[in-house]
């Protein structure tokens, strides 16, 4: 299964050219009646782009900062335990194992 996963990640990134499909989408929307297009309520554009936050949005916002709102409660003991070995206060042998295991890849 790991080989299949490889392909998926590669496909996720390089699979399809980014900007082609959105043009097709635009053309199809042109076929709608002219009036609808003309009287477009303000803010429609932004609404559209919010829905389409995906690979095909040609006007995607240019932002490198990626700040996930963490919905986890980091006061939770189990959660703390899950990352304890990533700190020097945790188990060093387990941490080095983490790096060893992956040397092969």
């Amino acid at each position: 299964t790991s080989s299949r996963q490889n392909i998926n990640l590669m496909q996720l990134v390089y699979g399809k050219p980014a900007s082609k499909t959105s043009n097709e989408m635009k053309e199809s929307s042109d076929e709608e009646s002219e009036d609808d297009e003309f009287f477009k309520p303000k803010g429609e554009g932004s609404k559209k782009s919010k829905e389409g936050v995906n690979d095909n949005d040609v006007d995607l916002d240019d932002c490198s900062k990626f700040l996930k709102k963490s919905h986890k409660d980091w006061r939770n003991e189990d959660l703390i335990a899950s990352i304890r070995d990533r700190f020097v206060t945790g188990d060093w042998s387990k941490a080095s194992l983490r790096n060893q295991l992956s040397e092969g890849t």
Partner: peptide
């Protein structure tokens, strides 16, 4: 890039 998941650590190489 060659992109490979590292399942044991859930990271990507």
């Amino acid at each position: 890039f060659v992109i490979k998941p590292d399942p044991s650590t859930e990271t990507v190489i």
